[in-house]
Amino acid sequence: MTAVAAAPSRRPERRRRHRGDAAAYGFIAPNLGLLALFVVVPLVGTLVLSLQRTNGFGGGVFVGLENYARLFADPLFWRASANTALSTVLVTGLSLGLGLLTALLLNAALPARAVLRSILILPMAVSSVASALIGKLVFDENAGVLNALLQAVGLPAVSWQSGGAPAFASVVLVTLWLRLGFNMLIYLAALQGVGRDLIEAATLDGAGARQRIRYVVVPMLGPATFFLLVIDVVYSFQVFDVVFVLTGGGPQNATDVLVTYAYQNGFVTRDQGYAAAIGVVLLVVAVVFAVVQWNTSRTRDLTE
């Protein structure tokens, strides 16, 4: 009798749970639909396109993995890959370090810190193309502000567009300027969660300012650092507008990255199958990095 009586009483609970699940799926259905329309469908289309030889007009010719085989024999692809890797390492490392430093400074009782915060996050308020145009005004080798200042103090002008190394440096510096404010903002928010009692306890134990930052503050910022590391690396893989506006990939492909190289193949030479293959490779590298970093972070957290 008890089991028979208990069975009907569970039915209303199950109905309520099913109605709750249905409501939840109903709320997320529009987002899932937009995700499928603007992310999944283009990804599948790019993968299919990478298996074809096509200029974008008319039907393509299925060539299988031929486009991917071309990548391994293409020196420009490897140069663009090297440029992408180097700029990613430089921009990510510098933006994380400088973002943490500026967050620590602006988290202290610094005069006019509100104004300084606004200046640092200013690139986030305008489009990246506009920010790249500002960088163009600064680094233009003929009429740029920086070369004018160098010549004013008796130093020679720098070939920011015609020299390979200076051109690459200008791309890295402008990209770093674009990322610094975002990293600072995330670190600044994370610093609000560091307990004052931990800082005071470390101070009472005789820890100096550097020791408190190294052994107390930095470990507490681990989740924020992991988030910024993944976001900055993925962003660096996708940099296009800064390179396109500042150097156009030149001189002689010295500043070409994978995204600009894919653009040139897809919309300049109209080899869209090959450009799609470059995009797929870039996606795979980004996903592999994110997965490895995620598993590494989880393993470290479990061991701790």
Rank of each mutant, 00 (worst) to 15 (best):
L100V: 04
R70P: 02
L104F: 08
A112R: 12
A109V: 07
L96F: 06
F62T: 12
R79E: 12
L86W: 08
D74N: 15
L96S: 03
A24C: 05
L86G: 01
S87E: 03
L101Q: 06
V44W: 14
L37R: 02
A24P: 00
A23V: 15
R117I: 10
D21K: 04
G93F: 03
V48M: 13
N55H: 05
D74A: 09
A24D: 00
G93W: 03
R53N: 08
A69E: 07
L51M: 12
P111H: 11
L34V: 14
L105V: 12
D21N: 08
P12Q: 12
A7V: 12
R14M: 13
S118F: 11
P30T: 13
G99N: 09
P111M: 13
T88K: 02
V4K: 14
L90D: 01
L86C: 01
L100A: 06
T92Q: 01
L110Q: 05
Y68D: 00
A7H: 03
F72I: 11
V39G: 03
P42E: 10
A108E: 09
L51Y: 04
A22G: 04
T92I: 03
D74L: 05
H18K: 11
G45V: 03
G97W: 03
E13I: 15
V48A: 13
L32N: 07
Q52D: 02
L32Q: 05
F57D: 00
P75I: 07
G93V: 04
G64D: 13
Q52K: 07
L47Y: 07
S95F: 01
L65R: 05
S81W: 10
V89F: 07
R11D: 00
G33N: 02
R19G: 00
S9P: 00
G59R: 14
V44P: 02
N83R: 11
F38V: 07
L98F: 14
F72D: 01
I119Q: 00
P75D: 11
L104P: 02
L51S: 10
R70E: 14
R117L: 08
H18N: 09
G58N: 13
P111D: 11
I121Y: 06
E66K: 12
Y68I: 00
S95K: 02
V39D: 02
A114G: 15
G60A: 10
T92V: 10
A24I: 08
E66V: 06
R10G: 08
R15K: 11
L37S: 04
L76S: 09
A114L: 12
L106R: 04
F27Y: 13
A80H: 05
R14L: 15
N67D: 04
Y68K: 00
L37V: 14
V44T: 12
S87T: 10
V44K: 06
F62A: 08
N107I: 04
H18R: 15
L71N: 01
G64R: 12
R53S: 13
S87I: 13
L34H: 04
V40W: 06
A5F: 14
L90N: 01
I28N: 00
A108F: 05
I119N: 04
L37Q: 02
V39Q: 11
S118K: 02
A7R: 13
L105D: 01
G99C: 07
T88L: 09
V39W: 09
G99A: 08
N83P: 10
G97C: 06
G64F: 08
L120M: 13
P8K: 14
A108Q: 09
A85G: 10
A109Q: 10
V4G: 05
A6I: 15
W78K: 05
G99I: 10
R79D: 06
